[in-house]
Write a protein that binds this DNA or RNA. Structure first.
Lengths: 203, 203, 203, 203
DNA sequence: TATGAATGAGTCTTCATTCAT
DNA sequence: AATGAATGAAGACTCATTCAT
């Protein structure tokens, strides 16, 4: 079989490809990979079913390309944040900002998060993407902290734990709503935990 | 139309039903729900496809029943642990034990974890199961701590964060193997974070 | 393959067979042959599915035997009426009685009529049964008329037409309810038509 | 999920859809609805099974569309006959024509009649179709009669009875062949009965 | 005799992918 | 480059019938 996936040259063709990725990725995020079929994707992208296979090897390809294109916005919006300067006294504030940013982002694309996280757990390439970006995120945070005078003392581990704490908090706030849980208190406890992690830097 | 689902009476039939759940749940855990078909399940359970539908409403039913039967062992093995007594001085040790227990359990059923967690993110009933048990787990830990003299000061929130920390650590250890991460250090940081959470109790 | 259909000798066995026929035929009459399965039949007859195949060759067999057993009551209740004596002046009354008898019978087993008539149109043996009884009915009516002084002048044809008229009327009354149709008038027209058929005898 | 049913645009596709209806309806008429499967239909129409479900919701849909397309030719060919003018003296002739028309039509699609009539008795939508057309037929006949000077005196009832008489006759001629029945005589008796129904108009 | 467990061929239906135009 | 028609393998599920006990 010939590999006849064509990389579009013309502007219109490029736009068409983008449109398919967008439509496909959105549908997959809304309904899940297995509950989305190519006919729907084509329809939503206002193209024919046939054309899909001139731009993409298969349905899976759409997912992966969609993930690469839109994944960062959903999972790692903070990756775009660079060169943050802050006073150590205001570390609290920074954390609060991050948390709020995270939470509001979660809320926006609630189902997308769910569906893609599902695939992180079941699909190798999605997992690969996710963990790679997570690592980038860790490194990005490390650099921010280093550039603000934090010392490189087990920093990777600390940042990883910190991210886990924030993620867990956001998840709780966005989905579960365990009735007996007070999110203000939780947030304060999380912030306190993080400050404890970096106590050597903050004293 | 008749309600086809029959509860088997004969011993051999009961065993067969169990066998189908086991085979089905295992396959789903290994390969994912959508990549497992009823013919495979039947074959692995050494039964005909027909019998599957006498004991189960549909494929999904097998998943749910399998989850109820084996899920606790995979996700919440500690739920069986009750009446733990410990000296506050040995809180470290207890935490280390828990972490090791968790990690070894993760390692045993690596893919099961992944596949089921995928469904927690995409399927309502699986999510329901998971979060319910998670809550039970939280409550169980709360009681253990209370019975060992910890005070009920935002205990739910603290325990939830603690579980998140442990979970995150285990996950990291079992899957990622972020090359630059030192798990001993991470473990110590996690333990320290937890102790910090309960500093009022441990002073 | 051995033909191991057994004719039951013991009283209990005979009753069981009857029960299966009754249950099966009733279900078929209610829901149609293709919408009735053997499990349902067995359940309704309070027997096991296995036993069914010791008394009957197959599902079809139940239908045929049921038809032979209960069909007459549904389709040809008048077959039991013999030795009717009437005065020619009262022919009207007789016809009215017949019609009412027919109609009330139709109403009792409305769906049975529908379902079995469906099979008259699609199944050879059901058709065979039906037309045979229809012939018997014709002959029976012929004899009644002859024994009351009617002459044998194209009597078969007349009776057949008469039966068609009554049948058609009953059907209309029982099912259609064509809103604009006055059944009293229709009945009178039918009776008048029949009397016209036999005008040579009634003058 | 998407609404899969597509209305074909291309000429060839339209023909293919027609072909499927034709093949499906024919098979159902020959062998019955439950004895016809989609694979056979596809094969007879020289298409793949998949395409069937792009044009039709399900097997049942094929039946209904087939009925709407071909049903009139089979059941109500006379519906096309309009603006009939006749002299009351020739009412006999008209009736004979009708009867012959009916009979020859019955003979052509013998099994179709049987199978579809079976469904009239067991399926709501088929029944709906049938009785609706029957009503149209009645009305059409009424108008013909009215336009030829018949008076509107219980005309609906009379026409309905008349149709029943003709139908019954045709059925007898086409199927039963009750050996002892003389169809010429029967035909004459039927015609005489009809004329008697309309005696007020014909005197 | 009787049970109900077990079989597996058969049915409808879906959908990723390819083809003809 | 584009369309949308067409393919056919694969899957879930049913059910008449047979089998083991």
């Amino acid at each position: 079989m010939i590999d006849n996936i064509r990389e579009p040259r013309q502007q219109r063709a490029i736009e068409k490809k983008e449109k398919i990725i967008e439509a496909g990725f959105n549908l997959i995020c809304e309904n899940g990979y297995y509950n989305t079929n190519t006919a729907e994707i084509a329809k939503k992208a206002s193209v024919s079913t046939g054309i899909v296979y001139q731009y993409f090897k298969d349905k899976y390809d759409i997912l992966i390309l969609g993930l690469e294109k839109y994944g960062d916005d959903i999972f790692f919006p903070m990756l775009k944040t660079k060169d943050v300067k802050f006073d150590k006294k205001d570390f609290d504030k920074l954390l609060k900002q991050m948390i709020n940013h995270y939470i509001s982002n979660h809320k926006v694309s609630n189902t997308a998060h769910e569906e893609i996280m599902a695939m992180v757990h079941s699909d190798k390439r999605v997992a690969e993407y996710y963990y790679k970006r997570e690592l980038e995120m860790t490194n990005s945070l490390k650099e921010i902290l280093l550039s603000n005078g934090f010392i490189d003392d087990n920093l990777s581990e600390k940042v990883h734990i910190m991210m886990g704490l924030i993620d867990n908090l956001c998840h709780e706030v966005t989905y579960h709503k365990h009735s007996d849980m007070n999110y203000n208190i939780m947030e304060n406890l999380v912030i306190d935990s993080i400050k404890n992690l970096f106590k050597n830097d903050l004293d």
